[in-house]
Amino acid sequence: MKKWKYLTMTAVMGSALMLGACGSDSAQNGNNAETNAPASSGQEAADEKLQGTVAGDGSSTVAPIIEAVVEEYAGTQPDVKVSVGVSGTGGGFEKFIAGETDFSNASRNIKDEEKTKLEEAGIDFTELAIAYDGLSVVVNPENDWAKDLTVEQLQKIWIEDGTEKKWSDIDPSWPDEKIVYYSPGTDSGTYDYFDEVILDGADLVSAATLSEDDNMLVQGVSGDKNAIGFFGYAYYLENKDKLNIVKVNGVEPTNETIEGGEYTPLSRPLFTYVKNSAMKDNEAAYDFIKFTLENAGDMAEAVGYVSLPEEKYTEGLKTLEGLK
């Protein structure tokens, strides 16, 4: 009685393992077949039903846009399996370099060292802009002094100089209170972009609280009168009632100022970097990226970002066509 119980248990588990081994083979073959088969050159890809897999990873700032695009794309091409991770811009590039993804989302330009590594790995890539984001500097609603900061003031606030900074150090008419800092984590493209345009290579104040979760930053700034922080425009937009936006050089980030380029230097383009060989060989990947460029504008607006001017997308589509 006992014996057959264990025998069946062993048999079930054994077969599960065996099945696993077989399953993996067929899945691999399946993938290859899927990606190679529909290699017709039709421009009206939307009309034909494609099959295949497309893998991406990267920035959490870009993720909401891509999620919306993937959702829409699943409606038109249900058999193309698009999967996108959210490892952050840096983490995404690591996987892109390892050859694990067909495209990598980024909230900053690719770094030189990443370029070198991609060259070493023999991966050719192309940069495509998909939307704008206005990096928003915010303070607590009770903060009635810092309404408009210049870039120099931002530098003074955010660059580490070994001293403990007070608001009165920035402007003598401001309160004699310690500044409390909230910043995105160092693996995020948002941090990198801020580092590039404001810090200019100098160190961020060591007193800053870093978090990869932008909602934590929102909570931090909204909970402390002397706090200052920065993050993507979408997070400000959703938490308008809890935060005060800071004008930078007299310009407030709005859809118009970000798209028109007046909100400098903190408005930034969001990118996706595509692997050239994947665009060439993987019909599904090409089609998905094409779909992304065609719809990114609307999707970006829908989730709280700013669309690029129409001609930028046309330009991107042309570049993409050249890769095929």
Binding site: G20, G23, S24, S26, A27, Q28, G30, N31, T53, A55, G56, D57, S60, A63, P64, I66, E67, V70, E71, Y73, A74, K81, V82, S83, V84, G85, V86, D213, D214, N215, G232, A234, Y235, L237, E238, N239, G304
Partner: peptide, 29 residues
């Protein structure tokens, strides 16, 4: 990955899991 719109069809298929999906939602603006 977190963003996907299909179900796994084999052991080598891409997939996402409950805690990943929850984490992703909790980070949304």
């Amino acid at each position: 990955p977190v963003i996907l719109q299909f179900l796994p069809n084999g052991l080598l298929s891409q997939f996402t899991a409950l805690p990943m999906q929850i984490y992703d939602w909790a980070k949304r603006p």
